[in-house]
Amino acid sequence: MRERLQDARFWALLAALALTCLALALPRVTLTRDVYDVLAVVDITGSMNTRDMALSGQPVSRIDAAKAALERLLADLPCQSRLGLGIFTERRSFLLFNPIEVCENFAPLETAIQELDWRMAWEGDSMVAKGFYHAITIAEDLKADLVFVTDGHEAPPLPGGGTMLPEFEGTPGKVKGILLGVGGRDKVPLPKFDDEGHEVGTYTADEVPQENRTGAPPPDAHLRPGYHPKWAPFGTDPPSGDEHLTSVRSAYLDTLAASVGFGHVDLVDAPDLLGAISEHARTRPVEVAVDIRPIPAALALALLVGLYAVPFFTARLRMPARRSTASAPPLGAAALRP
């Protein structure tokens, strides 16, 4: 018995056994992890059909790029996060469904994202800021944060020479989130569709409103030709501009995001969407059960492997000196013979 107590192998085996017992007995440990509740609202207005984005080398429309980005986000969100979906067109956002858990409902969520289509849109207008502010009120009501996906193309342009944001009625900072800009950096023509939904060329400069002449004129209006404070507050020249061309309006989106304390990233820069969300959105701590049984099991495995591997090496080292060692193993068993 005494010898046995001095035998390191015996102790190693006993320890491995005890660790395996521990692995069997250990309960799950609950850890806290941060998850997100996100409402994604996608701009589906006409300008989102512009094909100036790329997906694996192929040119795709902004809306397709936005859908791909949301699908990736869906896959990246940690389990127990919730994702809701809405669309934006005209001047308001429309909630398709409340946020639902992302892992359990992965398949329906993925299809719902894929089915987003500009044909769901009901008006040609695209009052991005109004729709964005409206989406914030929906998100606030749902206690979720917001990812608003848009190219920032206001149609008609904002009054005051495109500088006057509509009034935000909520409390800035109450809902957090990001504005995700979609679209290329270069200005390209806006595609045009007929009533049946067929693409019929692109818009020309005189087919879209170039300036919003409602409300107060821009502060530099008095420099315009023919300006008169009462009779021609916007000058006498017909409005000119490049509103028929479109690109991601990064500078505008920056201003818009800053007005409500949101973050802003552009999809062309291939941003880490979940990273941007974790930086700007609120987290919700959840308890997750973590299985720690593999830890003692791994220690038991290490001991057991060591038990077998050590004699393997020592036997080799000692082989020339102690010839009998190599032939010894069967003897251990032979000794058991009655």
Partner: peptide
């Protein structure tokens, strides 16, 4: 390949 039983001189 290897036995974990104690090798014994004989």
């Amino acid at each position: 390949v290897v036995s974990a039983q104690r090798p014994q001189s004989y």
